[in-house]
Write a protein that binds this DNA or RNA. Structure first.
Lengths: 258, 258
DNA sequence: CGGTCCGTCTTGTCCGGACAATGTGACCTC
DNA sequence: GAGGTCACATTGTCCGGACAAGACGGACCG
């Protein structure tokens, strides 16, 4: 009965089928959004194809339209779908890389198959200087934890990491720091990382930095300063890091919210 | 009649007042979210203070609870509010910098009061090589626009910018490129920028780069490669840029979506 | 005094419906 | 044939209600 022929989201044998389990404790909208995301990821929903209108989709699944909209909206926020009033909802054309987690050097190296290792150079407490106090939003002179680490890949130095944390937030054990990344330790301590403000620059290596990182004096180094916040807006970490430019580059994705 | 005393969002003279205009074409939830955001921005809602429960807020404004929730949710997504079941919704503790737009060097310099200027070195079309084709998702050898620019601040060079764009997307006039940034031109051409994938690294300047940027050979340079996508997922620009590390650093904010 | 249970508060999820806004395509008119 | 007009399809906004889930405080009991 459709007056208009539309490019439907069809597989080889009909429309992609979704289903929800009402006995599951997982919210219905979340079940649906995961199935949609998986279908997009696996190419079952081709880029550019229309999803079919919300009301019919809701009826087919036995859900209400608000629930279906909530599922779709979460994927729109992720950049996987585009809604167009009067047209429909379609899959974006290019495969979108995932929004990229707050990059952890340890995880980055591990994912690249580089077998990261860590040498803890310092694990103590100190008084916050002006820069650290401003970054963490605490008083100058307040006690903070200070960790300095050398991160290695394949036995060669990649970066020198210096981190300051508010006192009492987490107890950092040197043995743990040698075996995993700082963010993993914080997450397993119940801290939910939420956002980070970063500044990335470059400069020439000093003699000391060169010795530490096995680079000649004057070699280009990548520098990053980062303040990380948890979900309540507290600053939970301030890092001041130096990377060998010959061994590392940052990759990340920015989303624009208009 | 409240059995519990809660830290309310109070000003000097009672709770902050909001109001909506039903005759306005602006959606109600958007009116409310803007007023909430402004109140947070101006400190009228103190960090950590509770917002008051949704049902009462809805009743006070003459709105339904879903509408109020939609307004609140948009601010939660922005990282300005935190919801806690059984507790309430509260303002995050630290002032959050805005999510940071897709950084435009031109806008960055202008915002810093640096009076940016642009010298267009090249404005032509060419065939996409393998790297450009892969980044833009087009065929190798396809026609692309190519622009090379030197960006100056206070008359001194800051960066060398090379951009490739799919053919036919936008007509770039050299005169316009000298006067504003590429992103502004694209936006005013009706292209809605959505996300970008970036890689930032560093390296030592070659002789030619040094001459172009007024740096000695071997000076540290910041490099960035960026592919920008519009809201349908099309790649609309691939940039390969080189910055003087002594004059520029990237600042940006990353959001973690759990 | 301490631990457990329970009630209450708040957000989370879900439903069904209604009307508005907008883009598309077909139809009609000139 | 060209242009404007109109109906239709689809998402956008908004409402009112219902129950569930989690968190906190206080009462109760050992």
């Amino acid at each position: 009965m459709g007056k208009r022929d539309t490019e439907q989201a069809l597989g080889a044998d009909g429309p992609v089928q979704f289903s929800v389990d009402r006995s599951s404790p997982v919210p219905l909208y979340f079940q649906l959004s995961q199935q949609l995301e998986a279908a997009i990821e696996h190419g079952k929903l081709a880029p550019g194809s229309l999803l079919g209108n919300e009301i019919e989709l809701a009826g087919r699944l036995g859900l209400s339209r608000p629930t279906v909209r909530q599922a779709i909206q979460s994927l729109v926020d992720k950049g996987l779908l585009v809604r167009r009033r009067g047209i429909g909802t379609q899959v974006v054309h290019s495969q979108v890389k995932r929004p990229l987690e707050l990059s952890s050097l340890y995880d980055d190296l591990e994912a690249a198959g580089q077998k990261p290792a860590t040498r803890v150079l310092l694990n103590t407490t100190t008084e916050a200087d002006a820069e650290v106090a401003a970054a963490l939003g605490i008083a100058e002179g307040a006690e903070v934890a200070l960790v300095e680490r050398l991160r290695l890949a394949h036995g060669e130095p990649v970066a020198h990491l210096r981190n300051h944390l508010p006192a009492g937030l987490i107890e950092l054990k040197t043995a743990e720091l040698e075996e995993t990344g700082l963010y993993r330790l914080m997450r397993s301590a119940g801290i939910t990382l939420h956002s980070a403000r970063q500044a990335v620059g470059a400069r020439a290596a000093t003699v000391e930095e060169g010795e530490r990182l096995d680079e000649p004096e004057g070699a280009p180094l990548l520098t990053m300063q980062r303040t990380t916040f948890d979900d309540t807006g507290r600053a939970v970490e301030f890092g001041s890091h130096v990377y060998r430019a010959s061994r590392y580059a940052f990759e990340f994705q920015l989303l624009v919210r208009p």
